[in-house]
Design a protein around this nucleic acid. Sequence first.
DNA 1: GCTCTATATTGACAGTGACAATATTGACGC
DNA 2: GCGTCAATATTGTCACTGTCAATATAGAGC
Lengths: 204, 204
Amino acid sequence: MDLSEPTRPYHHGDLKAALVAEAEIILERDGIQALTLRAAARAAGVSHAAPANHFGDLTGLLSELAAVGFRRFSAMLEAARTSGEARPAGAKGMGHAYVRFARTYPNLFALMFRGERLDFGRPALREALDEAAAMLRSGTAAPEGRPVPPLQAAAQAAARWSLVHGFAMLLLDGRLAGMLASLPAGEGVDDLLDAVLAVTRIGD
Amino acid sequence: MDLSEPTRPYHHGDLKAALVAEAEIILERDGIQALTLRAAARAAGVSHAAPANHFGDLTGLLSELAAVGFRRFSAMLEAARTSGEARPAGAKGMGHAYVRFARTYPNLFALMFRGERLDFGRPALREALDEAAAMLRSGTAAPEGRPVPPLQAAAQAAARWSLVHGFAMLLLDGRLAGMLASLPAGEGVDDLLDAVLAVTRIGD
DNA sequence: GCTCTATATTGACAGTGACAATATTGACGC
DNA sequence: GCGTCAATATTGTCACTGTCAATATAGAGC
């Protein structure tokens, strides 16, 4: 009789996807410093060197994970842009979606915008990034009819992106905690963001 | 005769400052991942465990280095706020100083705003941070006379900080490269930032 | 069924943070 | 001058990591 564990097959079957999935769990639960090739391998139940076959090195794994993040990011922005039911549509709705993504997946968001650990040469990441960039552009498109000088158009787009991105980054890093505490009772992050978008005329 | 190197004293004398100085060199030259306790010790010519006496762990060293960064940051912002010679003073000048600091010390700036690696319980870091926060507040103070609702005041401050911080972050990560390339010949980062501050009425 | 190749394992190596044990030195009281 | 103590630095060690080489296994196509 065989008392040993039911032997898992030598080949996993879909190890790449499994590793990326485990990597995201580790990332959000334990932080970026705990996301190692060996930790992902352990979580997936394979040997420590198995991930190298699919990602090469740690940068490869992080890049694939970032690609997953950018695809999800695009989907959330797209949903915000088209359906303006609960939230206002357009640039304002996308701003809220941007910050909501960052708050929902804080560590993933940080990884996505930490270029030093990513390899943009990877096709999966490049494609996901291009898709997200197109999505962002669609939210900052210049209104038709009136031609706008290139500098003004670029400034409008850069301002919207910078404002929302900076808000998300400062919020995640706890830098806005004091400001939020000084708000009237009942007012929270969403209200502050609303007001921020209003004073900078981002919704126009 | 003694052919050996002139023996360095057993005690360094000012190892803490030397380690922080070497750490900054390593950080800006080789990146954050190359900044290790042992690398700093090697650069300072001491044993691998010597830094522990002054910083405890790696987080301690990074926090002290971040504190140095915040003090320098405050000084640059202060200079921009008071002397509006080459650059406009006030919020607009401070915005430019903010981005200039980030471009001058990109890796240090990234470290300063990566809270996960820092220990804000360290007095040096906390004090430097408080000083920088006060400096930033001075640039976003509400105009006197007319009382402003708390949400609007907070939004004004958060908007200015978010805008400039996001611009710096996206710029350092190369995310604005495409936008900058699309600018008319002769226009650069400073011009784009000027236009960004203008369209959001930050200079008001 | 045979071969080729993708996939996974084992084993090794250098580098790292952290800790314990030890050595050296300077400060301070006498 | 001298003795004691605390601060500072060294050596040695451990577990963990990324990466590589060598090897084992199994699936795909013929």
